[in-house]
Each structure stands twice: as C-alpha cells, then as structure tokens.
Amino acid sequence: MIELVLPARRKDLGGFEVGRVLPAVLKRAVGPFVFFDHMGPADLPAGIPRTVDVRPHPHIGLATVTYLLDGEIVHRDSVGSEQPIRPGEVNWMTAGRGITHSERFEKARAQGDHVDGLQAWVALPEADEEAEPGFVHVDAAQLPAFGEPGVHGRLIAGSALGLTTPVPVASPLFYLHLELADGARFALPAEHADRAVFVARGEVEVDGQRVAAGHMAVLATGRATDLVAHGAVTVMALGGEPLGPRFLEWNFVSSRRERIEQAKADWRAGRMKLPDLDHDEFIPLPGDPPPPPNPMS
C-alpha cells in the first residue's frame, strides 16, 4: 500500500536540470536515504562549457551513491580518485569527517552525450559520521543481477532478495534498479522497515495505484508490494532501517547541528582540501560571494 506520493521538483543547476525528490516537506528520509535526485534526462551537445560541470564542493556525515542509466560522468575527489562512471556502475563515496569532489561531463564536452541518472545521499550511523573519507567504484558485472520473464533487476547497494552487493554500506539498506516490460509484475518484499519506489521512466501500478515517471511512492511497512508495468518502465526501489533525525544543510548531513556549523566554517575558511585536479575552482557556501571567474571555463 502507498502511504505517500512525492513528485520530483525540477531544479536547474546551471545548464543541467535535476528532479529533487528527497528531502521533502512531508518526508525527510526513507530509511537512511536522506537525499534523492534524478539527473536529467538531458542531451548535452559537444563543446559544452565547463560551467555545466558540478564544480568541487564538500560533504560530511554521509555517503553518496551515483548510478547512471545513460551517459558518462567523471568523478574526482580529495582522496585522489578520478573515475568515469558509466551505466550500471556504482560510485560510492563516503564523506565521513569530510571530502570534496566534482562531477564532470568530459565525454559530452568531447562528442556530445545523453545523460540520465540518479544520485542519492545515505546518512551514516552516528558512530561512523566522522569516519575516514573514502571512495569505491563497482563495475556492473560485480553487482548481483536477477530476472524472470519481463523483469530484469540489479542490486546496486545493500541486501535484498537474498542478494548482497560488494558496495561497503554502513547500515542495513537496499537499492534496486528494475527494468519491467509492459504488463510485467514484480513483488517487492517487505524485508526492510522503510521502502519506496521511484519511477524513472514510464508508468507503474503500485498495489493498484498508478505512479507516473518523476514520482516516488513511499510504501507502507510490513507487507509485500506488487508492481505492474504499464509500458516499458524503469523503477528504482530503495529503503532500509531509519537512523534517527539528521540535520541537512547544503551538502552537509549530521546528527549534530553544531557539526554542520563547523563544516560551514571550515569550507568558508578553505580548510577542506580540494581534489588535486580541481584546485582552481569551487562552489562557495550559499550566501557567500562567488569566487573569481576561472579563465579556462
């Protein structure tokens, strides 16, 4: 049964549009997932300026998980990672006590690209909020896949359906990518306290109620949920055990308000290391004056 349907709120990030679902006024989190964006879909022409890229910015107290349906993005971070991410692969970045990163559309800049993907933030347990930052990339072939007639699924992170991924999660959760053919059915089990399904493409019937693309259906606890595809659909299912209240401001997540204030002060004062290949630009704290223009942009 559906408890709540949340629409994605479209937001222009300066040449690239996202649909933001979490956090919402009526639902701050689903299990440990405190943020959920649908990036695109967007057709980016060859020669796009660097201003379309997501410039270096900081995080604390969370892990980000980036997963693409189409296109390519290059990730760079302050622990030395530089990694292209392609459809079906997982970028899992643990911010912990603090990390900075950027996301670049290098393929699109060189030859044009169609980009469609998801980025979620997962809160860390209080004991892990100040963990060492880190980054893990997992190829599509390493992720558990499953299927039946009309259904193809991949477990992106966590555990579900008797499967577990190599992605190093810090608390009980699951994150699934489902492709359903027209008329196909899939029963999402009730094995996690919090669950939701986001319709990335097409339209799906959730326990008899239709949910259109760009909407997230938050599900009732304790019972399996029946999904029925109307046309070909792409669905992301996610959830897990709640971790308790979290403060979220800009790119910072913490169980303590004062820790977020410290992170803001550290970013403003330049005390957070930038990625080695991105030391010449950054996104300022909201409300601060913009940095000088980069002549290479």
Rank of each mutant, 00 (worst) to 15 (best):
F247H: 15
L6R: 07
V211G: 04
G222S: 08
R195H: 07
S297R: 14
A263N: 00
N294T: 02
R201K: 14
D113A: 09
E89T: 09
A141N: 11
L248E: 13
L178W: 07
H279T: 13
A184R: 03
R9E: 14
G15C: 08
K107G: 06
G208L: 11
A184T: 13
A263E: 01
H101M: 02
T94E: 08
L219V: 02
H230M: 10
A110N: 11
A232S: 12
A213C: 12
L118E: 00
I60A: 07
S78F: 00
P56L: 06
L248W: 14
S297A: 15
L180C: 08
D288K: 05
S159H: 14
E241M: 11
G162C: 11
H59K: 01
S159V: 12
F105R: 08
V79H: 06
I48P: 03
R201L: 14
R50M: 11
D53F: 12
M272V: 15
A184L: 09
A263H: 09
H279M: 12
H57L: 01
V199E: 00
A157P: 02
D37Y: 06
A193D: 13
M272Y: 02
D280K: 04
M272F: 07
H192M: 01
P275Q: 05
K107N: 03
V30L: 05
A63F: 06
H215I: 05
S81R: 11
W267A: 05
D276C: 03
A200Q: 09
I283G: 00
R223E: 15
L22V: 07
V18K: 04
A110W: 10
A131G: 09
M1E: 14
D280H: 14
V122K: 02
D128P: 01
E258W: 12
L178M: 11
T100N: 04
L124E: 06
E130V: 04
A181Q: 15
G208F: 06
L238M: 13
L69P: 04
A212K: 14
A187D: 15
E3I: 09
M216P: 06
P56F: 00
V65M: 12
H137A: 10
V25C: 07
L143A: 09
W267I: 03
G134V: 03
P286S: 01
F282C: 03
Q83I: 10
R28Y: 07
N251T: 15
A123T: 05
M236P: 05
A140E: 13
L44G: 08
I85Y: 09
H137S: 12
T225W: 01
S102Y: 05
R9V: 15
Y175T: 04
V90N: 07
H114C: 06
W92H: 12
T100G: 01
F198T: 00
I156S: 01
R210E: 12
I260G: 03
H230G: 12
E203K: 14
W92P: 02
G134S: 13
E281R: 14
V21K: 02
E281C: 13
V30N: 02
V204F: 12
W250Y: 09
P284N: 10
L124H: 00
F16E: 06
T51G: 13
P289I: 06
T66N: 09
G239S: 04
P286E: 04
V34T: 10
L62C: 09
A123Q: 05
G112L: 05
E281H: 14
G98A: 07
A140R: 15
A212W: 08
R185A: 11
T66P: 02
P172T: 09
I48Q: 05
N251H: 10
S171F: 08
A46V: 10
A95R: 00
V228E: 12
R50L: 15
